[in-house]
Design a protein around this nucleic acid. Structure first.
Lengths: 349, 349
DNA sequence: GGAAACTATGAAAAGGTTTACATAGCCCTG
DNA sequence: CAGGGCTATGTAAACCTTTTCATAGTTTCC
């Protein structure tokens, strides 16, 4: 006699829907229904099943669920890096919305390398994510091809894609840069410098720079007179870049930095050089990191709706794909936060 | 005649292992083998299959793979929050190791709420993660029960669990606190204050505080003379806490903060109060965030091997479970980074 | 009172892999 | 040259759900 057939289901094995059904005296289909659309099951049976689910500590198998329904409740996030804290707020916003809906966030970094982004995307597709949040609208053809061929929804953040068919929750980096230029012009600054992020294959960095230059020009400042340096987003790099600018261009009275991280470094360089901010040099950052308010002097900066972008992206992916009010293009605003690092122009020396 | 049977496989559908096998004229088992243990397949067949895989842009279905093999290549990370940048470095370290191995990181936040942690853990188990990285060794019974019952490997970071059967990659928060106390004693400070994190259900915050107090006592400073305030890890809260301390205890000459975030706020409070650091007040932080070096004055702080913990945790989960050299307890060191925010004691006023 | 329309449930297939087991061909060895 | 041990491949089951379709029972309506 096949004794093993009679052996009780191994207690130590995680229970499945079969075990639940057996105990509730119903079919697995009904158990599944209770778990997914409870209202379709008679109340007493439903409650009996739920009780058993609870008793056994049953947790559905996400892989099986995903395989069958082709929905994993996983959303991928691909950012260049979290090292410089710029994208952390978006990540938090995204997760804060996903979690209550039972969805999870899969995080990946590219290190600002678009080729690595291709591999990252492939990896996320393999994991079966329901959607991918990208930063910026500059990507390899291959990246987009992968996304299209595998029918993975995606959205762009931190920028607004020119192609309106691509969902984006972002802001116009150019206007952000323009905000800074405009304010410096208002203050009477004529000798400007920019420490931009690395603009190559980075539409955010180049947009901010372009917007700044264009507005400066409109305000009567000769574009070619503006000193521009590019620098990776690191404190030390901002410091080094500012040092060069201050040494080589003794008449510069204001510096616009493509990110607050660069600005922190640049502020330090001013101090190193014995220049005071804002008396000698005005400084404007970009991002409005939490720390900006706590620097000395408080950093004037362009606020980026980072958390909001994350939340909006989450909304987009959580919304029923056929829903009527699905916002696939959310245009958010930047605004200038004036603190103590900017003042009216005064000649240096 | 059933024409649809003859219809070519829908090009627009992602190809599966069946399609590959068909084109290569072999069985799906062989395709699977090529993908997982290539060395077991004859070289010419293997290469033919790989070529087809490439041509078709085949991407394996992770859900099916996970379902069958019960390995998802997903590692969960549960931290209180990323808002204060404390845990970001660990996250980056973890991801940087997981990605090359084809594994991905699923991020979740608890907001310092241990009950929410239970739900988060359940959710991650449902997603089928192969392992979970936790922060600290203080958790609800139910959390641990879930992990055990579902046989999910997990590890503790940012602390060393007392229970040696629980893998941990962390450091001793008490020694970290002791480092700070010891250094302040060396400098001759006798009137100390601590702005600790919220110690309730937080072994890291309480460990740091305890270690500080114990060492201070050992160095002849009466424990009861030390002013202790607890505060959530936010710039503004650190500022508020320091303000109270400075107002109510005019003789305090040194403040130890349970995190750099608190220290940034506290530095600001000193400035608000017209006190200079380090001449009037010495300040020590904890974490050694990147920003610490760029504050004015540069912040003396206890360095935490955050990135390393992430990397070590990744190593642990990536290692073959039966491997001999699997390090399930990695004890890392904190060290004091002396900058400009600390100086020998001088009476205030 | 009987057809029509619902409602609650069950049976069974499907989703794409991995893997235990079987097999066929080959090379050795005695 | 029989038989044993390899190696490379194939067959088919299993992983755990969701979902389509069928069915039995109940209500509704003329």
């Amino acid at each position: 006699m096949a004794l093993e057939k009679l052996a009780r289901v191994d207690q130590r094995q995680s229970p499945t829907v079969v075990e639940i059904a057996k105990r509730a005296g119903c079919s697995i289909a009904t158990v599944s229904r209770v778990l997914n659309r409870p209202e379709t099951v008679a109340i007493d049976l439903r409650e009996r099943i739920l009780r058993i689910v609870d008793e056994l500590g049953y947790v559905p198998n996400g892989s099986a669920r995903a395989l069958r329904s082709s929905r994993s409740r996983l959303i991928g996030l691909i950012v260049p890096t979290l090292d410089s804290a710029i994208f952390t707020r978006m990540l938090e916003g995204l997760e804060s919305r996903l979690a209550p809906a039972g969805a999870s966030l899969v995080y990946s970094a590219t290190g600002y390398d678009l080729d690595r982004e291709i591999r990252v995307v492939r990896n996320l597709i393999e994991k079966g994510v329901d959607g991918i949040v990208l930063v910026g609208s500059c990507h390899r053809k291959e990246t987009l091809k992968l996304l299209r061929e595998h029918r993975v929804r995606f959205a762009v953040t931190y920028a607004l894609s020119e192609d309106v068919s691509i969902p984006s929750m972002g802001f116009d980096n150019r206007s952000g840069g323009a905000l800074a230029a405009s304010y410096l012009a208002d203050l009477g600054h004529k000798n400007l410098a920019v420490i931009a992020g690395v603009t190559r294959e980075n539409d955010r960095a180049s947009g901010r720079l372009e917007g700044f230059l264009a507005m400066a020009e409109r305000r009567g400042i000769d574009r070619s007179s503006i000193v521009v340096v590019e620098s990776p987003y690191e404190f030390s790099r901002g410091r080094a870049a500012a040092k060069i600018i201050l040494n080589q261009n003794r008449n510069v009275t204001a510096i616009f930095c493509g990110s607050d991280v660069l600005a922190v470094g640049a502020l330090r360089a001013c101090k190193d050089a014995g220049l005071s901010v804002p008396q000698d040099i005005s400084m404007i950052g970009f991002d409005n990191l939490d720390i900006a308010e706590y620097l000395t002097p408080g950093l004037t900066t362009v606020d980026v709706p980072a958390r909001l972008m994350g939340e909006q992206a989450a909304n987009y992916f959580l919304a029923d794909q056929n829903s009527l009010d699905i916002h696939s293009r959310v245009e958010l605003e930047t605004r200038l936060i004036v603190r103590q690092s900017t003042a009216p122009a005064r000649d240096r020396q």
